[in-house]
Every structure is written in structure tokens, then in C-alpha cells.
């Protein structure tokens, strides 16, 4: 579906990341993990064709993404930004209907079929009761769900989510993760591909996702969560000692050791150790 080889990403002449290989197909969940500033957002912008790659190409269904019109791209990839407040108090339904834009002619208005698709998306996420509410007055978690509904209404095979659980409370975070899992794995949604970035390695375990672990502008490891998110890798990337343990229910969790992460403990000190 989406494939990029030996990608160099960045702004102007200064690359943020080089030699990046990314590939995702239907039904897959790809979790992007890495410390702040490692280039996750830049990679997303490049994969969405919003930012030209410095080197290498992004192929969407076999075609270079830079040669495609925005509407074609949007029919194939939906983007879920971090929950934001738009400057105007649009209704939730209007926000979701904006996901239909790529399927409308340049001068067209969303019609009955688009409304039905929007309601369908809201219903899938169980938030149809919000349809007439003012989007700008919703809580962060509700907004995030609305933006996911917008991506669903877009009916794209691939969904890219930028830190979908950032700034959400515990309950909403679990709810959003459950929806992501359902999007990719439930037969009813015919297996969308989902790429998401997160700061929480436990989420990758919970989603049983493929993990792309980014470090200093490159890919440190790429593979199943249990293979990539090892004590050694996590400790190297985040510069503090992390242990990975398995709970009695069989799921892995990461446990950073706070007492050993004294200020003097830098990543340099660790790699030397």
C-alpha cells in the first residue's frame, strides 16, 4: 500500500532523518516510537506527501506520491492530526463531512450519501450523539474521536495518526487504542492499515503492533513489538535504564527504573557502560 525506501527527510538542506525504510499494508498497525525530535512528525509529513523527500521516494500503491494530486492521495490516506481547536465553531457533523472532500468535485457540496457516510463513521465510534455539538467545545478525547471519525468518513485504506493518545486521559486513551485495533483487525472495516506515533511503548505491546524504533534520525529497529522493544533498545533510545517484564496475563510492559535515572545518567554514560 505505502512504501518508502532509503528515505531522507527534513526541511531545506538539513536532513532530520536518513536511510529510512517504511512499508505498510492492509490490516497492519505500524507504531512509530522514538524520543522527542527524532523526526516522527517530519516522517509523517513526508509519507503524506505534504513535504517533499530530500532523497528517495514514497510510493503509494506503486505510484510516487509527489506526482499525485491531493485528492487522489486523500482517497488513499487519511490523516488524523493531534486534536486541535479550529478557529470557528463548526458542528461535529461538519467536521466529519470535511473528510468527504476528496470524494467531491471542486465545486460540489456534501450530499445525502456523504451525510450517511459521516453518520456511519460517528456510529462506528459510538459518538453519533455528538453530531450536532460544537466541535470547539468538546473535550480533547472527544475531539480526537471526531477526527478519527473524519478519517473513517474519508474511506481511505490507510490512516496516519499523529500521537492519537497525546493529551488524553486514561479512559479516553484506552478507548482510542481499542478503536485503532478494531480499524486494522476487524473484518467490518476491511482491515485498514494504521500508522501511529506514540511516546508510550506499552501501547505498541497492547496493539501487538509492528514497531519502527527511531533514533537519531535513523531506524534503530523494525519488527514485531516483542522483538524491537527490548530492554537494550529502549535503554539506548531513551537514555535511561528500562526493564521489560511480562505480566501474568501475558502482555509485556516497560518499567523504567526511576531511582537509577539520576541526572548524571546520560545516554553516553549508558552506551559506554
Amino acid at each position: 500500500m505505502l512504501k518508502a525506501r532509503a528515505l531522507s527527510i527534513g526541511y531545506g538542506k538539513s536532513p532530520v532523518g536518513t536511510g529510512l525504510d517504511v512499508a505498510i499494508g492492509p490490516g497492519e498497525i505500524l507504531c512509530l516510537l522514538g524520543p522527542n525530535g527524532c523526526g516522527k512528525t517530519t516522517l509523517f509529513r513526508t509519507l503524506l506527501g505534504l513535504l517533499p523527500a530530500l532523497d528517495g521516494t514514497v510510493l503509494l500503491n506503486g505510484q510516487p506520491i509527489t506526482a499525485m494530486r491531493r485528492a487522489r492521495i486523500a482517497q488513499a490516506i487519511a490523516y488524523v492530526p493531534q486534536a486541535h481547536a479550529p478557529p470557528f465553531p463548526f458542528e461535529v457533523l461538519e467536521v466529519v463531512l470535511m473528510g468527504r472532500t476528496a470524494r467531491l468535485g471542486p465545486f460540489a457540496q456534501p450530499g445525502k450519501a456523504d451525510r450517511a457516510a459521516a453518520y456511519d463513521a460517528l456510529r462506528q465510534l459510538g459518538i453519533q450523539h455528538l453530531a450536532q455539538r460544537d466541535y470547539s467545545r468538546l473535550s480533547g478525547g472527544q475531539r480526537q474521536l471526531v477526527l478519527i471519525a473524519r478519517a473513517l468518513a474519508q474511506r481511505a485504506a490507510l490512516i496516519v495518526m499523529d500521537e492519537p493518545t497525546a493529551s488524553l486521559d486514561f479512559g479516553n486513551r484506552v478507548q482510542v487504542l481499542a478503536q485503532i485495533e478494531r480499524l486494522a483487525r476487524s473484518a467490518a472495516t476491511d482491515g485498514r492499515g494504521v500508522i501511529l506515533s506514540t511516546h508510550d511503548p506499552d501501547q505498541a505491546f497492547a496493539l501487538d503492533a509492528r514497531v519502527l524504533l527511531m533514533h537519531e534520525g535513523g531506524v534503530l529497529a523494525d519488527g514485531a513489538a516483542t522483538d524491537v522493544l527490548t530492554q537494550a533498545n529502549l535503554s539506548a533510545v531513551y537514555g535511561l535504564p528500562v526493564t521489560v517484564e511480562t505480566t501474568p496475563s501475558g502482555r509485556n510492559v516497560c518499567l523504567p527504573s526511576l531511582s537509577q535515572s539520576a541526572p548524571t545518567m546520560t545516554s553516553d554514560a549508558l552506551t559506554m557502560a
Binding site: R45, R69, A71, Y79, M98
Partner: peptide, 24 residues
């Protein structure tokens, strides 16, 4: 009048409008 729907989408900002399929 013709672009009235796209103007809504454009008010989300360039990047989001482009991701939603508009040549912003």
C-alpha cells in the same frame, strides 16, 4: 459561491486541507 465547501476545509489550515484532498 462555487468553492464554498472548500473554503470551510481551508479554514482548518493548509496542511490539514491538503491532507483532506485540496490543493490548498
Amino acid at each position: 459561491v462555487l468553492l464554498r465547501w472548500r473554503v470551510n476545509v481551508l479554514s482548518l489550515g493548509d496542511e490539514e486541507a491538503r491532507a483532506l484532498g485540496i490543493e490548498a
